[in-house]
């Protein structure tokens, strides 16, 4: 049985788990290619206009491989952490896809509650049933997939750079080089090192999160707010770049809360949508890096002892 896995949205975070699991239970896996112009165009064609770019791209990945597979995985991620939520579009993703793309194959759309392993295992059973009846195989494959996923370190931490920035935003914006136009490589080339949220422990992230009046209910808000404000206030980096999706409701809140907390610490928000041009993006990155360089020079001019 051929199962299609679209390379969009949270694929970037959980692909090891998904691929291992389905391979081990005996499915043949078809992963869509890296995002490209064709996939983007397909996404724009099928998806509702009002949706954000990552959702459109996901539609493109589905459309690209749907005819080659027997069944397709549309992860309906409902929750990642206890008492925290994620974007409504993840929860309604299968409906969006099914009502927008014609002639869909069968699909695995069972809700994923990744906040605890028992619930996740239940998903594995439901999803695995399409492929095999062997419950022992499912159980063992599930465990192996979990182990592999936790051994797989995601995230970026460049070393030995003079200037460093914290790169923040949804994983699909950070790791998908087609939409972010190879931002990490670009920064590295201009002598800027990058660190991402995965390299900061939850305890340190929670320091500033605890100061909020309300406990954040988005996992994404807690992680990225906690990460960027810690890096900024502790002066671990020289600046922050936030990759934001145009018209993303979550980003609009997160960036505002970060701004409020870090004061005049260098903070660049790059908004990406299907119209974003590479030249414009480059100019903004260059200007930001220039500014960081100047700041560093100025700082080293100030004698440390009065």
């Amino acid at each position: 049985m051929k199962i299609g896995i679209p390379k969009g949205l949270l694929y970037y975070k959980y692909h090891v788990f998904l691929e291992t699991y389905f391979k081990e239970i005996g499915a043949e896996i078809v992963v869509s290619p890296d995002t490209n112009k064709e996939i983007l165009d397909l996404g724009v064609k099928y998806c509702v206009d009002e949706a954000c770019l990552p959702i459109k791209i996901f539609h493109g990945h589905v459309a690209k491989i749907k005819d080659e597979v027997d069944i397709i995985l549309i992860p309906r991620v409902m929750q990642l952490k206890e008492k925290e939520y994620i974007c409504p579009k993840f929860c309604g993703l299968p409906e969006m896809v099914f009502n927008s793309i014609p002639n869909m194959p069968k699909a695995i759309t069972n809700p994923i509650y990744a906040n605890n392993n028992t619930k996740l295992y239940k998903w594995a059973i439901d999803a695995g049933k399409y492929i095999t009846d062997d419950i022992n195989l499912i159980f063992n494959s599930f465990n192996r997939a979990l182990i592999k996923q936790s051994a797989h370190k995601t995230g970026i931490r460049n070393e030995n750079f003079e200037i460093n920035i914290a790169l923040s935003g949804h994983p699909y914006n950070i790791y998908e080089n087609f939409t972010n136009m190879n931002i990490v490589e670009k920064l590295n080339k201009s002598g800027v090192g990058v660190i991402t949220e995965e390299y900061l422990s939850d305890d340190l992230k929670n320091i500033n999160v605890k100061k909020l009046y309300k406990k954040p209910f988005w996992t994404f808000l807690r992680e990225n707010y906690g990460f960027t404000t810690y890096e900024a206030l502790e002066k671990k980096v020289d600046g922050i770049i936030y990759l934001s999706s145009f018209a993303c409701g979550i980003d609009s809140v997160v960036t505002e809360l970060i701004k409020d907390e870090i004061g005049d610490f260098p903070f660049l928000i790059l908004k990406i949508d299907e119209q974003t041009g590479e030249a414009g993006l480059d100019t903004r990155i260059e200007a930001f890096v220039d500014m960081l360089e100047r700041r560093q020079e100025n700082e080293s001019d100030i004698p440390s002892h009065g």
Binding site: C47, V48, E50, A51, C87, P88, K89, C91, G92, E95, M96, N99, S100, A247, G249, I250, S252
Partner: peptide, 15 residues
């Protein structure tokens, strides 16, 4: 504009 849940509804309503 930009309302996240209603964008999901909007894709379902045509069906």
């Amino acid at each position: 504009m930009g309302c996240m849940p209603e964008i999901v509804s909007k894709s379902i309503l045509p069906t």
